[in-house]
Amino acid sequence: MRPELERLHRIEQYLLSTSAATDWQRQLRLDPTLADDAHEQLRLYQALHEAGRLQLRRELSRIHTRLYGPRRTGWFTAATAGLRTVLLRWPRFRSRS
């Protein structure tokens, strides 16, 4: 990976607590901008978490609509919709509707 991506990876390992705290302290001493970058990366993760929740809620709404949403028109009504449109153009049928 490119050095910039390796850096993101290194910060992620720290944020996930998979790298030792002592090692992190050593890296902080060597790289004074690391702490700010880690803080910024943490905000990205929080936003991703929020976005994930929103997506899950959208998926749940779609499931709800599919299961309990407005009923679809039956096949007979759908199949004869075109015929009804044509018939309604005739004055004789229009008066009945």
């Binding site: 996930l16 302290q25 700010d36 803080h39 993760y45 978490h49």
Partner: peptide
């Protein structure tokens, strides 16, 4: 500059 001496607790991440 913020200091990050203590490990962060990130419940949201894949632990």
């Amino acid at each position: 500059m913020s200091t990050m001496s203590a490990p962060l607790k990130l419940l949201e991440l894949p632990l």
